[in-house]
Amino acid sequence: MLGIIEALINGVLMGSIYGLTAVGLTLIFGVMKVINFAHGSILMVGMFSAYWFVKLTGLNPYLAIPVVVPFLFYFGYFMQSWIIRPIFEAEKDVREPITVIIVTTGIWYVLDNLSLLFFGAEYRVVKTSVTGKIFEFYDMYFLLPKIIGAGITILCAIYLYWFLKHSKMGKAIRATSLDREAASLMGIKQSKIYNIAFGMGCACCGMAACVLIPFYYVYPTVGVPFDIKAFIIVVLGGLGSIPGAIIGGIIVGIIENVGAQFMASTWTELLLYGVFLFVLLVKPSGLFGMKQDF
């Protein structure tokens, strides 16, 4: 019994980090109606930058946040404005922007394989001051960096939610996601909103990367499992919904960790795909999805 509770809590901790990457994805989708298939690769870029930051300076991994997060924000910002924008504008009026989706897949392949060229395929770990520290609670053991990571993640998601609801920029972003034409008639510059939304989505990945680095391996295709999980999460929570992404993330984390108590971990992966298809069949708009968005 204790084992299951331990797995449940571990699931919530890991799931909230999955949730943060999914928040980035859902934010970009909400504004641009484009799924950023390169999202996992952006996370990989973030993890490698956090890795090199910690490795070269030897500082606390959480001090990488003020460096890596702005770096990824501008990475996303310029990726959108240089590569994606021209293609996006060509098919702005198309209902299904397929070309943009496939271009983000192209970016995925370029980034993953560039990092394979530069850094090689080996798994890297960085030893930090919190790596391997255990937190004990009623005979249950949790990795300290996971707890810190989940805490930072939740704070970050709450801040993002507040930012979108109450700040001026947040309101502009929501207006654009509701109705592009009306928003631009109100004097909101669309292309800038797209850049910022994309940058913020990538910054979420940067945040997740920094909290992952103390207890996770870094390798060139590290983004792929996170990518696939983020896709499952956003469909589960409803495309475009931020609370949905966090809750979806926690559900996925719980399935993964509690499932591992009963079966081999490769089977839990399959269970995730099963849940995903089930949600698509039963409630395609997800838990918190808006009706008009599918």
Binding site: I87, V103, G106, Y109, N113, L117
Partner: peptide, 18 residues
């Protein structure tokens, strides 16, 4: 140079789509 062909694929794709 492992993975180079996929970098080339991706770049060709981005340029052609552009």
């Amino acid at each position: 140079l492992p993975g180079l062909h996929l970098v080339i694929f991706g770049l060709i794709l981005i340029v052609v789509m552009r």
